[in-house]
Design a protein around this nucleic acid. Structure first.
Length: 321
DNA sequence: AGCCAGGCTTGGT
DNA sequence: ACCAAGCATGGC
């Protein structure tokens, strides 16, 4: 293999919780390792005692892209110290030790979360996978070196049962299963029907419209960085298919705005039961609490509550109300 | 303001 | 094994 390898000597980093907590939708676990694409790099990550080991398919001279994505330099302990001291948050932090907030590329993050509305994580993964397979660039054809391809990336398991007699160039062939996330330009050139064929349903017009605005230069994702939180949020929410929750996800996961606090039903339930156990609180009250109670790294708190509710102890937690 | 939009998962039989 | 209900979020 002609790639590179590096050890990130990071403590308090739980790779599985981080890559499987609804932040990203393209990472695949194979044994102890996770495979995914960061920028133009195919990367395999492995949790070790000493930290996170990263291997790439192609040679890497500058690892900054990976530090940026993993946010491995972030001092987690100092963030956790800013959390309010209440019982469910303590439990969530204890149960999801090492959970991190990643730093994604804005376009992939925005597009993925437009596709996420009223979908569960498994379904989002399927939609994104189809979108990449049909509109992304195949990595090996584009001249990017690859690992021996993980057979499940971009594929559904049942597809493996179909023996393909049509050669190596078909998109569904295991030798050609790695795809870049399609550019705004590529999505903008698609038809709504083609997008709907990726099972995204009513989200297709939102994705298409947003991709066209970006491709036309009407909307600049880089420019979002220069706005304050409220203004950036308003700008994102002006995009079709982007409401408050999705805007908050993009602000948190792509722009590093830790104060962003996406509220979905899981988090809403957690807040309801935690802070308004006796009477029902309106959505406004819940959102006000979300915006004020959790401090400068509220987004991290949200991620802990979310992952905790969905995995470790969601049911027991629910019974508290 | 309430209903609608697809498709996968879950639960009851 | 089957079918119905549940789910999750923004737009009109």
């Amino acid at each position: 293999m002609s790639g590179s390898e590096i050890l990130l000597p990071v403590r308090d980093y739980d790779l599985s919780s981080t890559l499987d907590s609804g932040q990203v939708f393209r990472w695949e676990k194979q044994g102890e390792s996770w495979t995914g694409i960061v920028g133009r790099h195919l990367v395999q990550l492995t949790q070790t005692r000493a930290g996170v080991r990263a291997e790439t398919a192609a040679p890497v001279a500058d690892w900054r892209f990976l530090h940026e994505f993993l946010q491995a330099q972030v001092d987690l302990a100092s963030i956790l110290k800013t959390f309010p001291d209440d019982e469910p948050l303590r439990m969530a932090v204890a149960a999801c030790h090492g959970l991190r907030v990643l730093r994604q590329e804005p376009w992939e993050c925005l597009a993925s979360f437009i596709l996420s509305s009223t979908k569960q994580i498994v379904q989002i993964r399927q939609i994104v996978s189809l979108l990449c397979e049909r509109f992304g660039e195949p990595l090996n054809e584009a001249g990017w070196a690859v690992f021996s391809p993980p057979s499940s990336l971009n594929r559904e398991d049942h597809d493996h049962h179909h023996e393909d007699a049509h050669g190596l160039t078909r998109p569904c062939d295991p030798g050609c299963t790695l795809f870049s996330f399609p550019s705004p330009q590529r999505i903008a050139a698609a038809t709504e029907a083609e997008l709907r064929a990726c099972k995204m349903g009513f989200r297709a017009p939102g994705l298409l419209h947003t991709a066209r605005q970006i491709a036309d230069g009407e909307f600049d994702l880089e420019k979002i960085r220069q706005f304050d939180h409220a203004e950036a949020r308003a700008k994102l929410m002006a995009l079709r298919g982007v409401g408050a929750k999705i805007a908050d996800c993009v602000l948190l996961f792509a722009y590093g705005r830790d104060e962003a606090f996406p509220v979905d039903v899981w988090v809403e339930r957690a807040l309801q039961r935690l802070y308004f156990p006796r009477r029902r609180a309106g959505a406004g009250r819940i959102h006000q609490m979300a915006a004020t109670h959790f401090g400068p790294h509220a987004g991290y708190a949200q991620q802990y509550l979310f992952h905790y509710m969905r995995t470790k102890s969601g049911r027991g937690f629910s019974k508290m109300g």
